[in-house]
C-alpha cells in the first residue's frame, strides 16, 4: 500500500470509528452526513454523477415489520452505513416491510444528505407505475427516488415508457431494470440495446460471473451504470469462506482487504463496468466489514485474476 493511500485509509477508518462509537440514534444527523469523496467512487455514465461503490440491499434483512426492537437495530445498521460512506440503498415493494423500515430509519437519522434511494416497480399492472412509485415513496417517507427500476423485468414493456415519462417530468432522476440469479439475460440485453436506461441491476459475484461475457461490456458500450446484487451469493459464499480455516492472503491486505467480505466486494467493484455493489446485512458488525471495502486500493486487472484464481481454489 502506498503511503498516501495508507494515510487516506487511516483517516477514513478513524472518522468512521469515531462516528460509529455507540452514539445514540437521535441527534446524529451531523455524523451521518459523512464526506463521501474520501471513498472509492464510480461515475454514473448517463450523468457523470459520482457514487460510492458500496451500497446496501434490504431483501430479508430489513423486513422486520412493526417490531420496535428490530426496527431500532435496523436504524443502527443504517447509521453505520451512512457514517462509513454509504449512499445507495436498494429496496422493493416485494421486500415486505423493508421499505417502511428503511423509511423509519431514515427519519430517525434526519434524512442523511448522502442517501441515494433506489427502489423498484413491482406490479404486473402496466397502468400502475406511478401509483406503485407513490406508495413506495410514502413508505420511504421521501418525495423523490434517485433511481426507479423495473423489478425482475415484470411487465417492463409497459413500465419503461411510463418511467421515462416520470423522468422527463423530473419525478425520478434515473431509471433502470433489474434481474438476478442470471435470469433472462437475453431479454435484458435486448432492453439495454433498445432503451435509454441509466442503470441495470444484475447478479455479479466471484462465483457467478455470467454477466461478464455480454452484459457488462454492453453496459460499458451503452453508458449504463451497473448495480451488482447478491454480491455474497445470498450469503452462501461469505458464510462458506468465513467458516473455512483460510485467512485472506497477505497480498490482499495490501489492497485494503481486511476480511473475506471486503475481498469479495473489492473484486466486484473493480470490474470497470460495475458502478456499485449492494450487500445486505442485518448486523452492524457485518455492515462495518462490508463498508470497509469502500477504502483502500481498487484491484487492477492483473490483481483481479489473481484474486479469482485464489478464491476458486478454495470454494
Amino acid at each position: 500500500m502506498h503511503r498516501r493511500q495508507f494515510l487516506q485509509y487511516c483517516t477514513v477508518q478513524t472518522l468512521a470509528s469515531v462516528a460509529m462509537s455507540g452514539v445514540p440514534v437521535a441527534g446524529i444527523a451531523a455524523q451521518v452526513n459523512a464526506n463521501t469523496s474520501q471513498y472509492l467512487q464510480k461515475e454514473i455514465p448517463s450523468s457523470g454523477e459520482k457514487l460510492n461503490v458500496i451500497g446496501m440491499g434490504t431483501w430479508q434483512t430489513f423486513n422486520v415489520g412493526s417490531d420496535e426492537k428490530l426496527r431500532l437495530s435496523r436504524t443502527k445498521i443504517l447509521r453505520t452505513f451512512f457514517t462509513s460512506g454509504g449512499q445507495m440503498i436498494d429496496s422493493s415493494p416485494m421486500y415486505g416491510s423493508s421499505q417502511s423500515v428503511v423509511g423509519d430509519g431514515l427519519q430517525q437519522l434526519h434524512h442523511p444528505k448522502s442517501l441515494f434511494a433506489a427502489d423498484k416497480i413491482w406490479t404486473s399492472d402496466g397502468d400502475a407505475t406511478a401509483a406503485d412509485m407513490q406508495e413506495s415513496l410514502s413508505h420511504w417517507q421521501l418525495e423523490k427516488f434517485h433511481l426507479l427500476q423495473v423489478h425482475n423485468l415484470v411487465n417492463w414493456q409497459a413500465h419503461l415508457p411510463r418511467l421515462q415519462a416520470l423522468k422527463e417530468q423530473g419525478k425520478v432522476k434515473y431509471i433502470g431494470v433489474t434481474t438476478s440469479h442470471g435470469r433472462r439475460h437475453d431479454e435484458l440485453e435486448k432492453i439495454m440495446k433498445s432503451h435509454a436506461i441509466d442503470f441495470v441491476q444484475l447478479t455479479y459475484n466471484m462465483t457467478h460471473r455470467e454477466a461478464e461475457s455480454r452484459l457488462l461490456p454492453l453496459a460499458q458500450e451503452k453508458g449504463i451504470a451497473v448495480i451488482a446484487n447478491r454480491p455474497f451469493d445470498g450469503g452462501y459464499l461469505v458464510d462458506r469462506l468465513k467458516r473455512s480455516s483460510e485467512a485472506i492472503p497477505d497480498w490482499a491486505r495490501d489492497l485494503g482487504c481486511k476480511n473475506w467480505p471486503q475481498f469479495l466486494l473489492k473484486y466486484i467493484v473493480s470490474h470497470p463496468a460495475i458502478t456499485c455493489a449492494i450487500p445486505a446485512t442485518s448486523k452492524v458488525v457485518h455492515m462495518k466489514e462490508n463498508m470497509g471495502a469502500l477504502v483502500g486500493a481498487i484491484p487492477t486487472e492483473e490483481q483481479r485474476k489473481h484474486m479469482l484464481q485464489y478464491l476458486l481454489a478454495l470454494v
Binding site: Q60, N63, L70
Partner: peptide
C-alpha cells in the same frame, strides 16, 4: 428461500 422474504430470527420474533 427466494419466496421467503424474511430472516429466521425475525420469524422467531413473530
Amino acid at each position: 428461500e427466494d419466496f421467503i422474504p424474511i430472516d429466521r430470527e425475525v420469524f422467531f420474533r413473530l
